[in-house]
Design a protein around this nucleic acid. Sequence first.
RNA 1: GCCAGUGUAGCUCAAGGGGUAGAGCAUCCGCCUUGUAAGCGGAAGGUUGCCCGUUCGAGUCGGGCCACUGGCUCCA
Length: 639
Amino acid sequence: MAAMAKVILPGGEAIEARGVSFLELLGPRAKEAAGALWNGQLLDLREPVPPEGEVRILGLRDPAALEVLRHTAAHVLAHAVTRLFPGTKLAIGPAIADGFYYDFLFPNPISHEDLPRIEEEMRKIVAEDLPLERVWLSRSEAERLLRERGEDYKLELLGEIPGEKISFYRQGDFLDLCRGPHLPSTGLVKHFKLLDLAGAYWRGDPNRDMLTRIYGTAFPTQEELERYLRWREEARRRDHRTLGPQLDLFSIQNDTIGAGLVLWHPKGARVRRLIEDFWVAEHYKAGYQLVYTPHIGRSRLWQTSGHLDFYRESMYAPIAVEGQEFFLKPMNCPFHIAIYKTKTRSYRELPIRYCELGTVYRFERSGVLHGLLRVRGFTQDDAHIICRPDQVEEEIRNVLRFALFVLRSFGFTEFTAYLSTRPEKFIGNPEDWERATEALRKAVEGEGLSYEVKAGEGAFYGPKIDLEVQDSLKRPWQLTTVQFDFNLPERFDMTFIGPDGREHRPYMIHRALLGSLERFFGILIEHYGGAFPVWLAPVQAVVLPVSEGDIPYAEEVAAKLLAEGIRAEAWTREGKTLRWLVREAQIQKIPYILVCGAREAAEGKAALRLRTGEDLGPRPLDEVIARIREAASTRSSGL
RNA sequence: GCCAGUGUAGCUCAAGGGGUAGAGCAUCCGCCUUGUAAGCGGAAGGUUGCCCGUUCGAGUCGGGCCACUGGCUCCA
């Protein structure tokens, strides 16, 4: 009895099959199917059912089918483009996390205004419900075909495909070199949208052609597509570059100050100060010592550190003074090392943990600057831990725990860790790498974090752990980095005297928890949508008089709150109605609005309205004060 | 740095295919005395990102810079 494969349909029904293709097996049910999963491999439905084993048919709504759907959507896009813009050369068109894209070389530039036309043409192709056929060509046929059509990029790809039988997919008059899999027909790509247009280098290489990339997304249902578009809209609404000026937090003035240089306005500075105070207090508690170091240093320092050899293109030009050259610091490490080296260190002193909110300057190409998230001058929440080899494991564990505590305090609850291991080119000895990598791995596992190993992705000077958080919109941000350095201790000849009376080389660990204050602030603004939790809100409470006669009482209430350590303001501007003031306070996302009129004044109360819009009515002042202090001291996200 | 797009008042945006810039909000001045998301009227505010050029005439057309947006590349 020959072996049979067990084919499980989306509904759970199982069929034994042998010697047929999936399409034949499924018949009309193929209209609801996107592909087949066999031993973790995605199979095309046109292929024969494998001889044995278990195969799961993916329904259109199956998350694993999304990739197939989007890949087919990319083909529909390419098809539409070839119809509308003859002479366009095709490059590649894969599915990506949020959708798909296709790279083209257009004979003439196109712009955003062309997207609706292309989308319209795509809808026609979907309405035509063209079946996608898989076509196998011999290598020479494939080459001739692509050459005839002038598909230079595809020819290059062909050269890298092994084997003699080359897979193409055909839908109507459109034929594309492609490994698949694809949906059975274009009619199944119903819910899609083109989103963006951007330049992209062929094969990501800046020395090669600049292609035009069209981004789009596709979903199995209209609801999911709409949900995704709403999510994009929400992200746009929370953009820190919009909220920053609107809430008067910061500005970046390229024509007066310079690109990538941030001005922290009073309210933004207030938030930053709160972050810094928390950060410093917790670092002292955790056994760190705060240091301050200058913004510039002599060129010999950067010579020793190796920055002038390896990092110079990211550094600002030298400043010449009295025949010496100084450089703006791109990193704090050399200064911390210099503090370490001011005396002979004993093994008994270690670990030494220097921390600093150190402002550094890096020359970033203008094209990569982005609001607060990518700037040229920024303050790292930096620390360097110098320890003995036998202390490495505990130090790493403590750093990781500390990082998680700090990030959780800012309302982040989802974390992913990335462990980057030794690359091909590295310095130091493999035993040290091994020990360091294992310490990192144990620490992550000990904290129960899910992690991914990025083999060979470590810097040449040491392995590292990065922590990624997810914000309230489920977007990932890499914040914490914990990085071993086997390079700088050598270069600076850092030593400590061991119990044996001899010099030993310490381990050094770089570490930043928030990354930079500028970037972190930008992320926080988006995470909270500008509505900071009470402990971080620049203004925690605003007191609004009902009419001019209530101003004295409003000022008295605000003064009382201030005396209780609450960041409060009385808005007593003439000529503004209560309605106007309430609206303004809501827009400013101030957590507590205290309305004070004659009724409240008579009873020593304030009418409490929350940022959420909830009106709690008149409350005794003491109750309001207790409530605000409680929310602030617990760093709660609630009001 | 590269591709595409954008740059008009403090902010958000208008000005058919070239004919000496307009609105709302904010600001200032009045009036209104206000009870939970914009009360009314008036005034002031611009070398249209910068520099060249075409033209009798440029916000508008051409070139070059600068900056921003979306990406790509980069981020030891």
